[in-house]
Each structure stands twice: as C-alpha cells, then as structure tokens.
C-alpha cells in the first residue's frame, strides 16, 4: 500500500458521512417545521375590532391568536386611580401612560401571568381584575398588585385604525 492510499480512503469515508449527515438533517427539518404555525394560522395573526359600542366602564373580550384580549373603556375614576399609584408600590413597575397610550382604552391580553388562567373583570382588592385560580389581584391598569403572578398583564401590539377600530397584532 502506498502512502497516499489510506488518506484517500479516509477522505472518501469522511465525505460520505458528512454529505449523508447533511441529508439526514435536511430530512428532519420538514418533519419539525410541519408542527410550526401554518400559513392559515399566520394569516390570522392580526385582527380588527370595532369598539364603537363599548360604553365607559365596560370591557369586551375578543379572541386574538387563540387568546382572550380585554378591551376596556375606562371611566375617568379608573384612569385617575391608575395614574396615582406610586411606582414603588408596584411589583412590576410600569407607568399607566405606557400601558394605555389613549388613557380611555386599555387593551391587554386577558391572561394571568402566573399560570395562564383568565382573570375576572371588576373583581379583586384593586378595582381591576382578579384571577380565581391562585388569587392574583390586578389594578385598573392591569398591573399585578397582590398574589403569585410575577408581572403585569401583557399589552399586545395594537393601533387605532380609526376612532372606532382597533387593530391588534
């Protein structure tokens, strides 16, 4: 056997293995990706809501990406109450202005940040929401005040398309 031969043999095997491995990886990807959200699901990624009929002090719940979204038209009292809260009293400090760009409207995911239950409207010690699962209390800005939930209820990306229509997502 010459000196070159074993080298070439090794290269051949390494190349076969390497090319084969690439192929296996390429086959696995479609099998994984098929479980990701499909085209019809992604097409529903944003939703438009007509809020013209919501009266002050009322909340509507709409479904967005399979999750409930609370849209509350807040009363002046509620807005004032939310704005008066001191940052040091908050577990997860966020200003009300940052959560509700238009103070009259609070839009947030209606999901308790503890373990994913849907909190109840107009309940709890802080006039906002109360999660019946493990007793988390949220204030009129949807911020966590008492109980096991770690953070405030999440505000999704949304915008006012016009005075009466909110586009979520």
């Amino acid at each position: 056997m010459s000196d070159k031969k074993p080298k070439r043999r090794e290269f051949l095997f390494t190349a076969s293995y390497a090319v084969g491995a690439v192929g296996v990886a390429a086959v696995i990807w479609p099998l994984i990706d098929q479980m990701n959200p499909d085209a019809s699901v992604k097409a529903l990624a944003s939703t438009e809501v007509d809020v013209s009929s919501v009266k002050p002090g009322n909340t509507i719940t709409v479904l967005w990406r399979g999750k409930p979204v609370f849209i509350r038209r807040r009363t002046q009292d509620e807005i004032t109450e939310a704005k008066l809260v001191k940052m040091e009293d908050l577990k997860h400090p966020e200003k009300d202005e940052d959560r509700a760009k238009n103070p009259e409207w609070l839009v947030m995911l209606g999901i308790c940040t503890h373990l994913g239950c849907v909190p109840l409207n107009d309940k709890g010690d802080y006039d906002g929401w109360f999660c019946p699962c493990h007793g988390s209390h949220y204030d009129t800005s949807g911020r966590i005040r008492k109980g096991p939930a770690p953070t405030n209820m999440e505000v999704p990306k949304y915008e006012f398309v016009n005075a009466n229509t909110i586009k979520i997502g």
């Binding site: 043999r9 051949l12 076969s16 090319v19 690439v22």
Partner: peptide
C-alpha cells in the same frame, strides 16, 4: 442532485 452526489460517494466507499 444531492442524492446523485451521495450515491457516487457511497459507491466508491463501497468499492473501497
């Protein structure tokens, strides 16, 4: 194209 390349490689590996 990929399969043909791999087949050729495997063919020569087999011969070896």
């Amino acid at each position: 194209v990929y399969l043909i390349i791999l087949t050729i490689l495997v063919y020569f590996s087999m011969k070896k």
